[in-house]
Design a binder for these strands. Structure first.
Lengths: 132, 132
DNA sequence: TCTTGCCTTGACGTCCGCGTCAAGGCTTAC
DNA sequence: GTAAGCCTTGACGCGGACGTCAAGGCAAGA
């Protein structure tokens, strides 16, 4: 299959495929007229890359998975190097989620404080002081 | 004070201050020799910007806070426009944290599956089948 | 006077994953 | 023949928040 079809089947663009090739992630045979030619195995590689990209992996981080598949393994994560990336990414995600949760709490606290200070904003639902 | 001192007191660089000025966030008086001149109020503005930046706010999102302070309010979030940004940012953070948590779970599951398939990796601590 | 250390503006570089345009070649349908 | 729809390489653009370099002016101390 040619680049347009591969891109369509993977839900991406030809530009993206050429970019991956320039990064050494996806190689292509060439037809006599110079057109890139791909097979089902390339589609598998490409889908592996896209899945990891959707997870937020850097392109470089997908390389071990691609090389693993190229080496003939059934899955991109059938190799130790891929597992290392998984573990590192998990640690990064945990760190990031923790930071964002902390920021969320701080921003939430700021909002609550500011709303309390601005009359007419929060529309207080309970009257804390005084009965009249 | 001049730009170098302001930058140092806010823990940033002169380049950053000039960038903020180019974005219209931080204005400066000029000394007769052309040097930028700042006062304590500018430091307050700058610290407001830096705090929000550290929280992950875009520069544009800090603008309402800066304008609020410039308008004479005691805090950058003493104005409704700032509260709107707070609320939007909270929603964005919630959305992002949710997405990252989902990705974390999926990556974790992939890792577990891959480790189970690669012998010698996870070093199983319990023997699930057989008693001997 | 000369050096040192501030300051000025202007402009290009960085990172990343592509988007988009230019200029042209191949193949097939009409 | 020619138009349409593929494909090729090359190269600039983008977004965001600056970093970094260039070339030069200003002020103060030895």
């Amino acid at each position: 299959m040619r680049i347009g079809e591969l891109a369509a089947r993977a839900g991406t663009t030809t530009r993206t495929l050429r970019y991956y090739e320039s990064r050494g992630l996806l190689s292509a045979r060439r037809a006599v007229n110079g057109y890139r030619t791909y097979d089902e195995e390339d589609l598998k590689l490409l889908r592996q890359i896209r899945t990891l990209q959707d997870f937020g992996f850097d392109l470089e981080e997908t390389r071990p998975f691609v090389e693993c598949l190229r080496a003939g393994h059934p899955e991109g994560d059938s190799c130790p190097a891929s597992l290392v990336v998984y573990r590192r990414k998990l640690a990064e995600l945990d760190e990031l989620i923790e930071q964002l949760t902390s920021v969320r709490a701080q921003v939430g606290a700021q909002l609550a404080r500011a709303e309390a200070a601005v009359p007419g904003g929060p529309e207080p639902k309970c009257e804390l002081g005084g009965h009249a």
